[in-house]
Write a protein that binds this DNA or RNA. Structure first.
Lengths: 334, 334
DNA sequence: GCAAAGGTAGACAACGTTGTCAGACCCCGA
DNA sequence: TCGGGGTCTGACAACGTTGTCTACCTTTGC
């Protein structure tokens, strides 16, 4: 990727000064149409492309038309959907390139990615946190008032956040189960370190407590296999729950698998947080409380753009509602 | 994202020349430890970060430690899995940042993204094509011998490609169905413009022809809903197929949905190309011919790295085998 | 005690671009 | 014929960094 033609190369070919070429490629006035034409054909012939680094260096105040999004796990379909919405909004409304990278869940790598994007100078950052508190690079950028928006999870600092109403959604989902007569409900959670999971747990506990019901709680179910095991074990126990709230989609997948293998899918109620591709493919179809990825991505983009435009008001916290979609599995009565 | 401290700012704070600071931040020899220490604390205090643009500009021959991947649709789980493998390999073995963007299937936007990454100077590009032939920007980069690897689909030019064995996988999957006695097999395809879909169709046709069986072919099933409709219609017809080959995962999801709604999931055989999250959640579990996303991503990274390292041999075509995973749905006999 | 050698620090140019300024040219009217 | 004004073009500096070269200061060896 070297030996690219520069303004000078184009200028030499067109027989003009490189400043004239600069004017032409930037559509600046003050170039006669004959010369402009000659320059344009030289540009086309050499395949000249402006060097973004040099441009950015010279006009260090200008917009880079680039924002970065740092993923915890870009293969998560929910994260991908948020990303898609975020990207579409920024590309279409602000002509801004969205670049991304994923830390695969490693906090050190996560912070390192923030660092790498910072070195490369972006207009702003969207971050899906992997841990409770920001790493050194992220903290430095927050101090520097770099436009940053956190998506989906609490960053552990006072900053702009766009997140689903985890508490309200989990509370509503659990109430939904309790309304069908269940008195003993299981909670299937993934990483307890994750704030969104903790919030869903809080909403779950709210609903259980207000109804005076009982609960069984499992955390650490980060893969379908682990969730499958946990459900199998729970249901074999003496006082097994009669309804399950899966706080995360992979846990839900494992729960469905276990229920079907045990043949108890028509007996044990299940509500799953998050969208599930499989929701209406199984019998009974799975009642879900899906996060609105489209709204989250769009809201994050809006907040970030406002910050990039110079808005320096206090951090905002945008909460996107989560609504229950009844499909059958959550309506199984005791 | 402005007003960042520069070498000069750090130098002023530490009371040295900016070149000395440069030496310290680059771990170059020739700085006394006392001064180096003073510089390091000034760096820490100001939160100095090297300006990547300036660095790249100065050393225009050097590696940028950055490659870009341009997606057709980053929300496709298969694409996401390939990306994850690609990213992990490059981050860990070559300390290279992988940035990405997605065109959401729009060829013009796709080529524009290539252009934007080119302007930003990356060491190489990985491209998941959206159309049969490269756009102007991509063509220009190919002419310029920019390291580029195409993933999963044919680019329409002579270039490095890493792709699954679509033909062989589809042929094997179809033979698998025919081996269970079916004589009339349906083909469910998504975009006919896509070369991978055409190849799967070719493999399908191979197997049908060699067995002297009959086929019904549907293209354009790009969403589960469209596939659902198509299957519903096919099965209602006079000479309905008794087995289905879904050439793409979204089409497979729709097919499963239709079969279950019609209650014919134990009667009509189904093999699906690609990985399906739902594969073993439904009854019968779905027999698949999954692409090896991990191998594809890794192979693409290896090819690209070799090109970046200066390998200028003829374009290679790496074909990653696709193996059938029998789970039940594909073994339903006539 | 002095020259040579080595280690340390800074001055300066250059990368490719854009902003500022000045110069060259042309046309027009006096 | 000449000056004034506008239009077009180019020279030059600057952005923040790294590579090269030079200058200083200390140490070493005779």
């Amino acid at each position: 990727m070297s030996d690219r033609p520069t303004l000078k190369d184009v200028a030499a070919k067109a027989g003009v000064s490189f400043k004239t070429v600069s004017r032409v490629v930037n559509d600046e006035p003050g170039v006669s149409s004959a010369i402009a034409e000659r320059v344009r054909s030289a540009v086309a012939e050499l395949g000249y492309r402006r060097n973004h680094s040099a441009q950015v260096l010279r006009r260090s105040d200008a917009r880079l038309q680039t924002v970065a999004i740092v993923h915890a796990d870009a293969t998560n379909p929910f994260a991908a959907a948020v990303h898609a919405s975020f990207e579409r909004y920024l590309r279409t409304t602000a002509d801004t390139l969205v670049v991304s990278a994923s830390s695969h869940g490693d906090p050190g790598e996560h912070d390192r990615l923030v660092d790498l994007f910072t070195e490369r100078r972006v207009d702003g950052l969207a971050v899906i946190p992997v841990s409770d508190s920001p790493g050194p690079a992220l903290r430095r950028e927050l101090d520097r008032n770099t436009p940053i928006v956190f998506i989906d999870r609490e960053p552990g600092v006072n900053a702009d956040v766009v997140a689903s109403d985890h508490i309200g959604g989990a509370r509503a989902a659990t109430r939904h189960l309790l309304a069908h007569g269940h008195r003993r409900v299981g909670f299937l959670g993934s990483r307890e370190q994750s704030d969104s999971i903790r919030q869903r747990h809080a909403g779950f506990t709210d609903a259980v407590t207000e109804a005076g019901a009982e609960s069984v709680v499992r955390f650490g179910l980060t893969t379908p296999d682990l969730a499958d095991e946990a459900v199998t074990e729970l249901l074999a126990g003496a006082d097994a729950p009669t309804a399950l709230f899966a706080a995360q989609n992979l846990a839900a997948v494992g729960a469905v698998r276990a229920l079907h293998r045990l043949g108890r899918q028509h007996e044990v109620a299940l509500v799953a947080f998050d969208h599930l591709e499989i929701a209406d493919l199984v019998e009974p179809a799975i009642t879900t409380a899906p996060q609105n990825a489209e709204a989250l991505g769009r809201a994050a983009a809006e907040v970030l753009l406002r910050r990039i435009d110079g808005d320096s008001s206090d951090p905002t916290r945008i909460v996107v509602p989560v609504e229950i979609v009844p499909r059958g599995s959550g309506e199984l009565a005791l």
